[in-house]
Lab assay of single mutants.
Amino acid sequence: HSLRVHINGKDFEVHNADEHVIRALEELIRRGADADELKEFLERWKG
């Protein structure tokens, strides 16, 4: 899957995101994670 996440006016393109990554991202958003947390998660995932 390809996923586009809009954080703090920046678009993050997440390519080849598997279900696990997408679910983790949705969980963060549901918990009310702020932009920094989401960005950190995506950067860690992209490795």
Rank of each mutant, 00 (worst) to 15 (best):
H1I: 14
H1Y: 02
S2N: 15
S2K: 13
L3R: 02
L3Q: 06
R4A: 15
R4F: 08
R4L: 13
V5W: 05
V5M: 04
V5Y: 05
V5G: 01
H6N: 12
H6S: 13
I7N: 00
I7G: 01
I7T: 01
N8I: 01
N8A: 07
N8R: 04
N8D: 10
N8G: 09
G9E: 01
G9D: 02
K10R: 11
K10G: 02
D11P: 09
D11T: 15
D11W: 15
D11H: 13
F12N: 00
F12K: 00
F12M: 03
F12I: 07
E13G: 02
E13N: 03
V14S: 01
V14Q: 00
V14N: 00
V14M: 05
H15T: 10
H15W: 09
H15L: 08
H15A: 06
H15S: 08
N16K: 04
A17R: 03
A17H: 04
D18H: 07
D18V: 04
D18S: 13
D18E: 10
E19H: 11
E19I: 14
H20Y: 14
H20C: 06
V21T: 12
V21H: 03
V21E: 03
V21Q: 06
I22C: 02
R23V: 06
R23T: 07
A24H: 11
A24V: 08
A24T: 07
A24D: 07
A24W: 09
L25N: 00
L25D: 00
E26V: 14
E26Y: 15
E26A: 11
E27I: 11
L28M: 12
L28C: 03
I29V: 08
I29P: 00
I29C: 04
I29Q: 03
R30Y: 09
R30G: 08
R30S: 10
R30H: 08
R31G: 09
G32Y: 05
G32C: 05
G32W: 03
G32N: 07
A33N: 03
A33R: 04
A33L: 07
D34V: 05
A35H: 10
A35M: 11
D36T: 09
D36G: 07
D36E: 11
D36S: 10
E37A: 12
L38R: 00
L38T: 02
L38H: 00
K39S: 13
K39E: 14
K39W: 15
K39F: 15
F41M: 07
F41L: 06
F41E: 06
L42M: 11
L42I: 13
L42K: 01
L42R: 01
L42H: 03
L42A: 04
E43S: 14
E43Y: 14
R44Q: 12
R44M: 13
W45H: 05
W45A: 02
K46P: 10
G47P: 09
G47K: 06
G47R: 08
